[in-house]
Design a protein around this nucleic acid. Structure first.
Lengths: 139, 139
DNA sequence: TATCATAATTAGAATTATTATCATATTAGA
DNA sequence: TCTAATATGATAATAATTCTAATTATGATA
């Protein structure tokens, strides 16, 4: 356990925003200005291997990281890529694969939609809506 | 409707492999050697807008395309990124969001696991298993 | 405490997938 | 056929991520 790892883990734990590697790099950079991007990626990979965090793929533009490794599901805004945890316990049967034999290890439900912030943005300025759709950074 | 578009659409329809843009480029390239990668991406974007195909994000390394735009779910191999359609009709309740108000537009379930091919690969040559994990191309 | 092996960090280059630009070519409609 | 609109192809640009190699920190042991 190095200071950098502590900082990254601390930042992640208790963060509900499902930050990307860049988010983490920027946030930690304030405390550790010398820290490199590679360390962020290395640490995230290590934490993932250790089962401390989970990597999410529901943001099509970048990987996102979830400090809660326990199985749960997500709601994703298709405009700003905001990801929100779902508390609901959803029970689904394992699939009946007819042609392919898979060893199923887990499942993940993604609900897609528009968050309230984006919805109000849309209605207030319709002309610009393609900007919100195409701009990856969500800014 | 241009010849290139026809070729891409024809290739997609009736393809169960959920190909990536590169897969499509390579496959169509045999018939249209002059076709550019940009055309593949442009066409896929157009077809997506038209609602003819669906873009999948469950492969962490690249976007994958599904010729079936109707709602259905998938099983993904975490080693070779093989994606298989699920025929099962799975009914899930829309989530009860307490803090955030989302307009939910759809949902997608991903089951994760190991396909039979990767499972036999693993047991037959354990020493090389990191190769299969790290090699993105799945080859 | 000094030494050593191991693992972590850094900076930067390299890679991969994807998107943008723009000149040219093609298409579809009058 | 003519023309405007759109598609294509070559290439450059970008963004996220991974790799490399040199340096540095860490922790165990003498």
């Amino acid at each position: 356990m190095t200071p950098q790892r502590m900082a990254i883990l601390n930042y992640l734990k208790g963060n509900l925003e499902h930050p990307s590697a860049e988010d983490i790099y920027k946030a930690i950079g304030k405390k550790f200005p010398t820290m490199s991007f590679a360390t962020v990626y290395n640490t995230l990979e290590t934490l993932k291997q250790m089962g401390q965090i989970r990597e999410l793929y529901c943001d099509p533009y970048k990987k996102r990281f979830d400090p809660n490794p326990n199985p749960h599901h997500h709601v994703v805004c298709t405009q700003c890529q905001k990801i929100v945890d779902l508390q609901d316990e959803i029970r689904i049967k394992p699939p009946t694969l007819t042609t392919e034999k898979f060893e199923i290890l887990g499942s993940h439900i993604e609900f897609y939609g528009i968050c309230s912030k984006c919805k109000s943005k849309n209605s207030s300025s319709r002309k610009e809506e393609t900007i919100y759709v195409k701009n990856r950074t969500g800014s």
